Amino acid sequence: MTFFPEINVEKTKANAKRKLREYPRWRRVANDVDGQKITATYTFEPRQAHGNPSKPVERLAITRIDAESELEAIEYAINNLLNPTHRRILYEKYLYAGKRYDFEIYNDLYLSEASFYIELSDALLSFAEQYRNGSLLVKK
């Protein structure tokens, strides 16, 4: 029995990429400014009696809390990567608000193209291990 289970590297990296690509969407959901749902006729949906929030408002609040939790989990995993180059690569490639091309990132980091993709691969695996105690890892 090994101390560390063998993982399927390609599927684990795919899981990490998928999760990191969700980050901008989670940010939009968490910072959604439309507090009240507007109907097709541009009227606000009525609230329930006694000022209780309606179901759509309730769902919006729960969705925002879930989005904030997801953002925190992604940011926590990246913050806990030991290699600062891995943190920067993941931030620049997946979390940065503007579009950055790979060649821009590896030129800024003074890496060759081959070195960049090796570092990116390692960064994705490290992220998968850190995110929610390894929930993105795919075991063989």
Rank of each mutant, 00 (worst) to 15 (best):
A114C: 01
K139C: 06
A123G: 09
E113H: 03
L120F: 09
Y110N: 03
K140D: 14
S112Y: 02
L125K: 13
A114Y: 02
G134H: 14
G134N: 13
Q130W: 03
A128T: 04
L111V: 02
A123T: 10
F116Y: 15
L120T: 06
L120Y: 06
Y131S: 04
S126L: 05
E119F: 14
Y110K: 01
S135C: 09
Y131V: 00
D122F: 07
S121E: 15
Y131P: 07
S135D: 09
S115N: 11
L137D: 07
I118C: 07
D122C: 13
K140E: 12
E119G: 00
E119K: 14
L124S: 03
V138K: 14
R132Y: 03
S126F: 04
S135V: 10
S126H: 07
A114I: 10
L124G: 01
F116N: 11
E129L: 10
F127E: 04
K139F: 09
D122M: 13
K140H: 04
L111P: 01
S112A: 05
F127M: 01
N133E: 15
F127N: 03
S126T: 02
S135Y: 05
Y117E: 10
L125D: 05
E129H: 13
F116K: 14
A114S: 10
L137P: 12
Y117T: 14
Y117V: 10
S115Q: 08
S115K: 06
E113N: 12
S115V: 08
I118K: 15
A114P: 00
A123W: 05
E119C: 09
A123R: 03
R132D: 13
A123Q: 05
A123Y: 07
K140R: 05
A128Q: 04
S135T: 11
L137H: 08
Y131H: 11
K139V: 13
I118R: 15
F116R: 08
V138A: 10
S126W: 01
L120V: 04
G134R: 11
L124P: 02
S121L: 11
F116L: 08
L111F: 03
A128F: 05
